[in-house]
Nucleic acid binder design. Structure first.
Lengths: 334, 334
DNA sequence: TCCGGTCAATGAATCGTTTCAAACGTAGCG
DNA sequence: CGCTACGTTTGAAACGATTCATTGACCGGA
């Protein structure tokens, strides 16, 4: 069907070995031979068969990236950083979406294994310890993304979510809020757990403050809207005076529900803060406060750790940054 | 390094052919043999080598998708639709991002060719006719996504952007706007060209209306902000009274710039409408009007056309739908 | 003229899976 | 008892690029 090195070799009047050398180390081939082979390649429209290369090489020049939600701009930013860094090292990145489901995560990892990817970048849904060990046993390096690893043998790139959660909560407390709520889930996602923990710790310093959990089944706009409707249905006195959302998608959904009623004002009645500081946070109905994570940098560093570039700390930690916008400033209405 | 069928065969006391049969057509193998081989597979932790399979098969079970901008939720929605449909047929989808650059597009297509993908779904940056012909000459089916094809031999899935552009413009004209502007670019992107054309046609019916072009180098939030700043800098009388943005990202960026000044009100001073109706449009500062495209359906149909499912029209056309929200309702301030 | 050295080119072996014609064993039938 | 038929299993060939030990050609020096 398609043109192979053999045919190119025949057309150029050389051996297959020489064609391969022209392709991979042209400096070891006489200039006019290179020209002749190149001409044959162009004439026949030869395109390398990657499967054959890979089979021979034993592993591919591809990195697998499994994210929790491909529709979340945060993860796409991470992916972009990873892709940039990978390209610089002659590698490409395969993006897979687990949709926060362990079964899908497992399926994607299995596929990556079959493809003999060079390495895996993973934002685990829950505790993927077993899968990770399995991959490592096969010699496939794994780097955890946006999540600190319990096992020091597994490199990871993370932003301290406990600090991030504390930043968010303290910010709300500072402006006088006391009836805080956290909207997000499922709790099996480590990021959610840590952010809640950070918030709890910050609140502990205020005896008159409390944190209520408003669980969701996923960190999406739709789930945020649902939580928003729940809040709206409550009697005003029962409502929290500040909500910390698990990420910006949830926050934006929530914001939509709250604003739609017309009777609840943000931030006067309910202050709101999200997480990730995606591009869209700044242009929300009420510009959304958020805890920023350096998404592209996370992706880039993960790739660098995987490829062993330089002398990097295998447990990379970045600091989250509070971005205060209108959705959380000002005093609560009494 | 890694376990091969040969070793599994040895462990199970059968031939390699039988192992392969257990893997691919277990019904042709005696039940107890299947069990024995399966046990060996589990014991040794055998994982198929996809490169070898592919080499033997000649092509992969993978579809390549090249989008204009992976950070645009619209394309991620398209990708999700494509992935769903592909999975139903035992295929997977590789997502590549051209970032609206022909060189990146070409590079990705080249990589897909090397990987002997089963087919390519492409949203071309400009006129990729040559590349498409090349692929087809190799027997790689190509389907154009979100773009009608000039060549009837190339299947495509598109939403009529001329109609969409007309919808948007007419909507603005209906509410009394006359000094319209289109913000977007580059003009080499067909979608942009068509949307402008549609707007022009709609405006032609109003002798007192005019359309100004505010070109951008890409359809991004940042470019939208830049255009917004340009408008803000003008004397009020010089400003358009309605802006039709090339897509929602540009519209949201623009909205941010306009609202930030405090002196320009949307929609009173300037009405605004975007394109795509991404999730975030509804939760913008001023809820954004938009022209909705059925993103997931586009992706799904593209895959179905590629795989030749059912008796579908190879030139699929969907209709855009006007979603009017606050950013464009009401009369202009006189 | 012969030899050592250098630079090019060669081509068989290899990677791991799938395929397929052939071999094998067993049961059924006449 | 012999033959066919069927259900299993076999194992070598094939896919296409890369590698590497080997061969070949040529030049300069002795």
């Amino acid at each position: 069907m398609s043109v192979s090195v053999r045919e190119v070799a025949a057309a150029a009047g050389v051996s297959v070995g020489t064609v391969s050398n022209v392709l991979n180390r042209p400096d070891r081939v006489a200039p006019d031979t290179v020209a002749r082979v190149q001409a044959a390649i162009d004439a026949l429209g030869f395109v390398r068969n990657d499967a054959a290369r890979q089979l021979r090489a034993g592993r591919s020049r591809t990195l697998g990236l499994v994210v929790l939600d491909a529709r979340n701009p945060f993860f796409m930013d991470v992916a972009r950083g990873a892709e940039e860094a990978a390209t610089e090292h002659g590698m490409s990145v395969l993006i897979a979406n687990s949709d926060e489901r362990t079964d899908r995560e497992a399926r994607h990892l299995e596929l990556f294994e079959q493809q003999r990817v060079f390495g895996v970048l993973l934002t685990p849904v829950a505790d993927a310890g077993a899968q990770i060990d399995r991959l490592r046993a096969r010699g496939v390096p794994v780097v955890l993304v946006d999540r600190a690893s319990a096992d020091p043998a597994t490199p990871s790139v993370a932003v301290d979510d406990v600090i991030g959660g504390a930043l968010a909560a303290r910010h709300l407390l500072d402006s006088g809020r006391r009836r805080l709520a956290f909207a997000g889930g499922p709790a099996s996602i480590r990021q959610v757990e840590d952010r809640v923990r950070g918030a709890r710790e910050a609140i502990a310093a205020y005896p008159d403050a409390a944190l209520e959990l408003l669980p969701t089944t996923a960190l999406t706009v739709a789930e945020g809207r649902a939580v928003g409707r729940l809040i709206v249905e409550r009697a005003p006195a029962e409502r929290p005076d500040a909500v910390f959302a698990g990420n910006d998608l949830v926050a934006l959904g929530l914001l939509q529900s709250l604003v739609m009623t017309g009777s609840i004002r943000v931030p006067e009645d309910i202050a709101l803060i999200g997480y990730d500081d995606i591009d869209f946070a700044a242009s929300a109905v009420v510009p959304l406060s958020s805890v920023r994570q350096p998404a592209e940098l996370i992706g880039r560093r993960a790739v660098e750790l995987l490829l062993g570039v330089g002398e990097l700390d295998p447990q990379a930690r970045f600091h989250p940054e509070l971005i205060a916008r209108e959705s959380s400033v000002g005093r609560p209405r009494l």
